[in-house]
Simulated scan of single mutants.
Amino acid sequence: MKRLLTVALAALVLTGCAQQSNPLESDTKVTIGIGGQPLLVYLPTTLADRLGYYRDEGLQVNLQDLKSGSNAVQAVQGGSVDVASGYYDHTVQLQAKGRRVTSFVTMGRLPSVALVVSPHSSRKITSISDLKGANVGVTAPGSSTDFFLKYLLVKHGMAASDAHTLAVGGDASAVAAMQQGKVDAAVMVDPSISLLQKRAGELRILADARTSAGVKQEFGVDSYPGSVFYASQDWLAHNGDTSRKLAKAVVRALQWIHQHSATEIAQAMPAEYAGGDPGVYVTAIDRAKESFSADGVMPADGAKAAYTVLSEFNSEVAKAKIDLSSTYSNDYLPAR
């Protein structure tokens, strides 16, 4: 009997050791939907994975490229992803529709989008006013690129519907649409803008929110948040520890970006994201570095600016009673 007990205890110990030696069995699984994974605005999401920062937090993360911000919104609402890597303004838009989502780590302190004229447009376009009746590309209807276009049209005295919007995606498909003259202009995100410029030469840019100076000019503010992680308030309430781990991993990636060169960052990313031109990709990353947050914090004035801009062209947002404090939270971030 003693020998049997000894063997049984030894088996239990060995089983326990075997379980501890396989961390995957204890990892928390999280699915993140990205509104266009190759786009630089979402670089920290992928970089945190490439550097192993999610795994360091005991997370088994599945990244899904959903091509556009509007698709990411639908995925979060439908429950096919746990977290969206998308733009903050969607949290405001969704609250106006009675749906509660909250951003919990800010990656982009700038929107990093630009309204670019196609070098092959058949129309003469020298100003935003010339876009009336034109075909303008956005990543997808209801995306933040679509919001940017509508805001600019209204700001320049037109209706939000005065330009015809076409979904062209955000990466190679957007570049192709511009090169082939399928659209007269497009709201684009890097590295697509840099790739188009390399192939087509100097571009006419009607509005540029990729720099602090550009954001000040277009929105009249110093801070305007871009890409964030957001999730339903219900998911956050039941996954607070997981959310804190995600935020910590992303903040580590943001700090790594500011501590390393554009070349080093490019080398850490999937090679195919360079669009066949590594040199242009490095240049685009170098230009984009200033757009990334250093600490993941959402500034209150930035959230207010996003709400004000949406209210300019979205009557649903303008009429709704928006509680901005519930559209974002800095409580999940690492202690500063």
Score class of each variant (00 low, 15 high):
260 H>S: 09
272 E>K: 07
78 G>W: 02
83 V>K: 10
326 S>F: 02
297 V>R: 04
103 S>H: 12
250 V>E: 15
8 A>W: 06
205 I>F: 01
176 A>D: 14
241 D>Q: 15
293 S>W: 05
74 Q>G: 14
333 L>F: 03
198 K>R: 13
155 K>N: 12
159 A>T: 13
145 T>C: 02
193 I>H: 07
218 E>K: 04
27 D>V: 11
156 H>I: 10
241 D>F: 04
60 Q>R: 12
117 V>G: 00
165 T>I: 08
329 S>T: 02
240 G>N: 11
284 A>I: 05
29 K>L: 10
82 D>Y: 08
133 G>C: 08
85 S>F: 02
217 Q>A: 14
141 P>W: 06
107 M>W: 05
233 Q>Y: 03
318 A>H: 10
105 V>Q: 03
159 A>Y: 13
272 E>W: 14
312 E>I: 12
52 G>D: 00
55 R>V: 08
114 A>I: 03
79 G>N: 06
231 A>C: 08
269 M>V: 02
126 T>R: 15
73 V>N: 03
21 S>L: 14
20 Q>M: 15
112 S>I: 12
232 S>N: 00
129 S>A: 15
41 V>E: 01
127 S>T: 10
216 K>D: 12
51 L>W: 01
80 S>P: 15
316 E>C: 10
153 L>P: 05
316 E>V: 15
215 V>E: 11
17 C>V: 14
223 S>T: 06
160 A>F: 02
22 N>Y: 15
252 R>T: 12
118 S>A: 05
282 V>N: 08
54 Y>H: 11
33 G>C: 08
160 A>L: 04
153 L>K: 03
37 Q>H: 10
306 A>C: 15
12 L>F: 15
138 V>L: 02
309 V>K: 02
115 L>A: 03
178 M>G: 05
321 K>I: 11
264 E>R: 12
236 L>S: 10
211 T>L: 09
292 F>L: 08
136 V>W: 01
24 L>K: 13
244 R>Q: 14
78 G>K: 00
127 S>P: 01
50 R>T: 01
306 A>F: 06
253 A>G: 07
224 Y>C: 01
62 N>S: 14
299 P>F: 09
212 S>H: 13
258 H>G: 10
8 A>D: 11
47 L>F: 08
227 S>P: 00
208 D>Y: 01
72 A>N: 09
121 S>A: 06
103 S>P: 13
331 D>N: 13
195 L>P: 13
161 S>D: 12
281 Y>C: 09
329 S>N: 00
18 A>M: 03
9 L>S: 11
164 H>N: 15
174 A>I: 06
314 N>A: 02
153 L>F: 08
137 G>P: 04
312 E>A: 13
133 G>T: 05
229 F>D: 09
278 P>L: 10
148 F>W: 07
89 D>H: 12
68 S>M: 05
213 A>I: 07
137 G>S: 03
331 D>A: 15
228 V>H: 03
15 T>Q: 13
268 A>T: 04
174 A>G: 09
97 K>D: 15
14 L>C: 10
24 L>N: 14
55 R>M: 05
84 A>G: 08
51 L>D: 03
257 I>L: 10
318 A>M: 10
303 A>H: 10
221 V>G: 08
3 R>V: 15
175 V>F: 06
